[in-house]
Design a protein around this nucleic acid. Sequence first.
DNA 1: TAATTTTGCGCAATCGTTTGAGCAAAACGT
DNA 2: ACGTTTTGCTCAAACGATTGCGCAAAATTA
Lengths: 337, 337
Amino acid sequence: MASKSNIFTIASETGYSVSTVSRVLTGQAEKFRISKKAIDLISETARRVNYQPDLVAQTLRTRQSRTIGLLVPGIDNPFFATLAGIIIKMLGDRGYHTLLADSRESETEEEQALQMFLGRKVDGIISVPVSSSAARLEQISQQIPVVLIDRHFRKTNLPYVCTDNYAGARMAAEYLLQRGYKRILAIQGVRSSMPNQERLRGFEDALKRQAVQYAAVGNAFSVENGHDQTIALFAGADKPFDAVFAFSATILLGAIDAFRELNMKVGKEVGIISFDNNGFLDFLDPAVTRVEQPLREASELAVETLFSIMEARREGRPDPDLLQRLIPPTLVVRSSC
Amino acid sequence: MASKSNIFTIASETGYSVSTVSRVLTGQAEKFRISKKAIDLISETARRVNYQPDLVAQTLRTRQSRTIGLLVPGIDNPFFATLAGIIIKMLGDRGYHTLLADSRESETEEEQALQMFLGRKVDGIISVPVSSSAARLEQISQQIPVVLIDRHFRKTNLPYVCTDNYAGARMAAEYLLQRGYKRILAIQGVRSSMPNQERLRGFEDALKRQAVQYAAVGNAFSVENGHDQTIALFAGADKPFDAVFAFSATILLGAIDAFRELNMKVGKEVGIISFDNNGFLDFLDPAVTRVEQPLREASELAVETLFSIMEARREGRPDPDLLQRLIPPTLVVRSSC
DNA sequence: TAATTTTGCGCAATCGTTTGAGCAAAACGT
DNA sequence: ACGTTTTGCTCAAACGATTGCGCAAAATTA
């Protein structure tokens, strides 16, 4: 019979009115000058009958759900899983719950999820957007604070916190240069995605005035793509490249697999460097040199940003500005190049 | 101005009452003999004003949230992340949303999450339990259907779907025997956990009447544990074991790292086999032979089980029985032993 | 003692929906 | 033409909380 109790139960048990009970239970007792006697009796009774507020009713009445909608494009991707883990924890610490939706890289599912967030009256949204246009999110942002993470739109005033992919790619390419590689291949992910475009730009900017050859192929953040592109280019007798820059850990794995098939020694015959975090990369042989994204820092910043907007709006202030942040990734040097 | 419209807006716009509007919008039109004219006008108006039902109000009134609470002990663990991904997708397909909570292996946080699920009026709970007792979940189960996944309690009537860890461990140990290994070391995870106990039992049962030596050490599903135990036992000149059975992928990684430090060739000087799924294991060199858990099948079964209970209860039938399932894992043979 | 202030609390509306009960008008049967 | 059924809809009460307003009794002041 747990939890069948509501505010009326307590009201009749104690002889006080529901208003008084509510005020006591929401901590507004002194504000309304409720007597100590009443406070004690009510709290005691609440405990005794194991009262738990109905969060749904509370939400309906107060228009606040203490819930944040978190939208990722693939929770089974370790990257987003870690992100989600951190964010859920941080929100929990602030007394907020998380409604998680997975758009699975589909604009349709993204729209459905957003619709659902609206219907569920979330207090804020943290999203890794997949759609190509910011329009819908900007529209929603007028009602509910939205913060973008990991991906953003080129022209938007939506707040975001992303990795500085340009700087990261540049860093990786320059490291390859420094290690003496002369013919460098980039294997890309989804070309239309912002991170990929930025990485490509960084890659090219780093190499274009240098005495090296380079190219960029591929079009998916997948193991297959990494594998197939590698086979396609390295299967012949003359090797056109001496180093590979994988734009994601999945791509990297595919490439490594391909090199194994081709019997090429990674680190010796061909250098390899990767984007993305993945603790796993340290256990490959050789351990993979990579550009790691500051996941924790980004998550923290995103949550803080969201709460600062929520607070501002609650107090009727305009949104704080300058909320678009690029965080520089870090180069983790191992022995694969 | 999106979504400021409610059922009253539509009622006054169309001249019908809120009841009629509600019935049309919830698809109960013919049941209440609403005229085609009314249906058309109302649906059209709803579309025009971009009406989106307030799910919170709906939940309050109908006592149904179309939301399932999913509780995992660590969403950043790839295993649970994959699990969550599959489950979220499946629930989505059935028109349900997911409220995700992470207990982080803490009983306290688990209790908080459950409390939250109750307050949010979830229609069902899928949980990887961390607490040592089934009591609380059994109590909740009287109000809200609960299905356990991946972990269960020895004595409970709660429905669950878990890997058959006993069979899996046995399978692994027997495979090692078959490959001719004579001195086998198991590195365990958390000893108090049910999966670990079952694995240990399978391991011992497979070996105890055989002409081989064996031992089990360790007490954590962590990289460090795998590493440290390996170092402790293999650092000396005489190697006490010729094969290692890692009870999880994390343990395995630690062991592999240790063997690298010790300059021992995995697959040649020492055989190694692991529990757990992890696509990554194929990219290690040598690829790791392992016992894989049927994650997708388990998730599907869990969701189906949950829905069958929900349906039964909606119709006032008793819960279906025989809902405790152990799914046999599969041996994936690679070249590490 | 009378006027004023403070203390402590209750009434009832409200959030946006759903739903049991009821009712007038139209259609039908005889 | 008059009772009966069907059609098509409306009324108003929930669901469980929060909250603006108001008001009697007690305490204080003059």
